[in-house]
Design a protein around this nucleic acid. Structure first.
Lengths: 197, 197
DNA sequence: CGGTATCGATACTAGGAGTAGCATAACTCG
DNA sequence: CGAGTTATGCTACTCCTAGTATCGATACCG
């Protein structure tokens, strides 16, 4: 794949991501203006707007980078889900990440385009992976995501602090219990045999 | 109680509340500027700022008025909690209320003063009432509130639509199960007898 | 060296939160 | 009725932020 003509982009994405989280962590989401983020990264604001169309897109991109792939490991479905909940809770507790997440989520509520970006780029990969590994339908996985992420963000938003371990464990217990009770399905297609009408 | 001197305030609070919800419902939270809300209410913007210090305070006040007292009724704790969850879910689904709630919550994440207003004026009354009627400690009631409200707002924020009845019932089932399992406490002080050291 | 695309810097537009000042309206008291 | 007091409407303003425009300089390719 030949390099396209013109001056190549300098590899500053990681620098911008780091500057974004640092600025949000130290000043809060609203005061983390694009100007300040650019200054913290040592680049011009216009350079940021050449790479990300809006501030929300920048934050989303930063979060996708910060979260990385989810560790969906465990002996059974319960362990996988427990590990996933503890993982996202820890991530939201990291400096800057939780505030960035809450901030961009907040913006997305009233911005359909940003909501689309957030849903597609950030949520969907994890949702699809969870549907696979848990062998659960989309509706149910979306419900779990709403419960877990919604709870963690509500706690962060109302108190300004991430959820403590004790409550995270209560969340794990509650959600895993729900997973194992309702329509328990261990094997995908054979659980409910098709019935001819 | 003698009327204080000067021109009395005109009784426009209800008009402003209605105009606020209407404007948010039709234009969305971000486009519902104070100017537009004032115009919809047929008053001057300065009049709004004489009664509420900030836009967030106006929305919070509007929500307190819109929610009203929670119907904490039922034969036992499970019924009370179930009714409360269905009630808040229905409220958040009403036109304008959910968007207003999500919007002001969003703003509060990065605004400690607004967070204080929201916590004190909106959440605390319901939290205290729930602690009484459920006979549960503060920490546990706060956890339930985080789960229920967080889940409902996350669904509204990610999809733009309130949670459907099926999922609300799943939420009810999940939370009520947690209420009845963990440290079940039927009587307040006698459950754990004081032990002299 | 020519072509192309990025970067930095400065200046700009658009829009919303919140404020200031003033004329006017409404009400109480004497 | 008139003086005192407070609320309202209106206009104009400040401050801040997202996002855009422009232009010279820079880096890479052939």
């Amino acid at each position: 794949m030949p390099r396209p003509p013109g001056r190549p982009r300098s590899g500053i994405d990681d620098t911008v991501f780091a500057a974004t989280l640092e600025t949000i962590d130290s000043l809060g989401y609203t005061r983390a203006t694009v100007d300040r983020i650019a200054a913290a990264a040592g680049i011009a604001k216009t350079t940021i707007y050449r790479r990300w169309p809006t501030k929300g897109a920048l934050i989303t991109s930063c979060l996708v980078d910060a979260f990385g792939p989810a560790p969906l490991t465990g002996a059974d479905r319960s362990e996988v889900l427990s590990a996933a909940i503890r993982w996202i809770a820890a991530k939201i507790g990291e400096p800057g990440i939780g505030a960035a997440f809450a901030g961009v989520f907040t913006d997305a509520v009233n911005d359909p385009e940003l909501r689309q970006i957030l849903s597609t780029q950030l949520q969907d990969p994890y949702r699809l992976a969870l549907e696979q590994v848990l062998n659960e339908p989309e509706q149910r996985v979306l419900f779990f995501i709403d419960v877990v992420v919604g709870t963690l963000l509500h706690r962060l938003g109302m108190t300004g602090r991430p959820m403590v371990t004790t409550d995270v464990e209560a969340l794990v217990t509650m959600v895993v219990a729900t997973l194992n009770e309702s329509p328990a399905q261990q094997s995908p297609t054979s659980a409910v045999p098709a019935r001819r009408s």
